[in-house]
Write a protein that binds this DNA or RNA. Structure first.
Length: 276
DNA sequence: ATCCTATCCTGGCTGC
DNA sequence: TGCAGCCAGGATAGGA
């Protein structure tokens, strides 16, 4: 599923194709993708705008807009589970699952494609409408071991659901939480307020290493859904140590990886390497 | 404060 | 081969 590394990959690939482009028209095939406004309002808001900057926050991608020389809010997107973004020539066939298409002034078209319809492409007068409640960005300098230690201690929750909570740390999803916890030797059912300073520091380092390595590999593609905007799969799924490896040996100790359910999420864990 | 369940969706898989 | 039923999963709302 698209998490921080996948969205970062998407942003890096679409940025050069969107920056400085003007939106000339739009075609909305599934209105609910717009997240609450009707297609007419959406079109009035975005058509005629120029995209000034493309960036990422957590699992959101953002395209800042400007019209008549003045800031005009932003397009804010979330791929949820099966969303994809393509920026392609007019002749490109986006397939049956395209939800919103934005025609650009260089002849290309940005397509928002989504099989399961959970993804969203909002127009926001201010991007904080979607981004305001998010927690710390795990690749920011402010995300230190000491910060994480204190933050974990200030809550009394199971560590995995807490790491998935986007108001706590923004950008991690099921895959990278399982991988980071394994690399840090922490059991997903560990209580957040019982994690020591040393182990919190280790967890911070492993979260950052996991995300950084995944970005280098252009994300993870373990099923048919996630592809880069150029249609290529990512490569990080080959590095998974626990995710999707139930019954297979732990790369560290050889014990069979177990699959349990934590917070209604499939959770992959090595009982020998990960301590509660 | 925290946890649990349902909801949104549909392709793909399992089992008969 | 066909089909019913279940599952995955990010985020959120509402209830316990």
């Amino acid at each position: 599923m698209p998490e921080l590394p996948e969205v970062e990959t998407v942003v890096r690939l679409i940025r050069p194709r969107l920056a400085e482009r003007r939106i000339e028209s739009c075609d909305v095939r599934w209105e609910r993708t717009l997240g609450g406004i009707d297609r007419g309002s959406f079109a009035r808001a975005v058509v005629g705008s120029r995209i000034t900057r493309v960036w990422r926050r957590a699992k959101f991608f953002v395209a800042d807009l400007e019209r008549a020389g003045r800031s005009n809010g932003a397009l804010v997107g979330h791929l949820r589970m099966t969303g994809r973004v393509h920026v392609e020539p007019r002749e490109f066939d986006p397939g049956p699952y395209v939800k919103v298409s934005l025609a650009l002034d260089d002849g290309r078209v940005m397509h928002f494609i989504d099989v399961r319809k959970f993804g969203r492409l909002w127009y926001a007068a201010h991007s904080d409408e979607q981004l305001g409640g998010l927690g710390i960005e795990p690749l920011d300098d402010a995300f230190t071991g000491e910060w994480l230690f204190r933050a974990l201690r200030s809550r009394r929750r199971l560590v995995k659901p807490l790491l998935l909570d986007q108001t706590f740390i923004a950008g991690l999803g099921n895959i990278y939480v399982d991988e980071s916890l394994h690399r840090a030797g922490i059991h997903p059912l560990a209580r957040s307020d019982r994690i020591t300073r040393v182990r919190a520091g280790r967890l911070r380092d492993e979260i950052r290493a996991t995300l950084t390595e995944a970005i280098e590999r252009e994300g993870s593609s373990f099923d048919v859904f996630y592809r880069t905007p150029e249609g290529n799969p990512g490569g990080y799924q080959d590095e998974f140590k626990v995710y999707g490896r139930e019954g297979q040996p732990c790369p560290t100790c050889g014990r069979a990886i177990e699959r349990i359910v934590v917070a209604q999420r499939g959770t992959h864990v090595c009982r020998r390497c990960q301590r509660r």
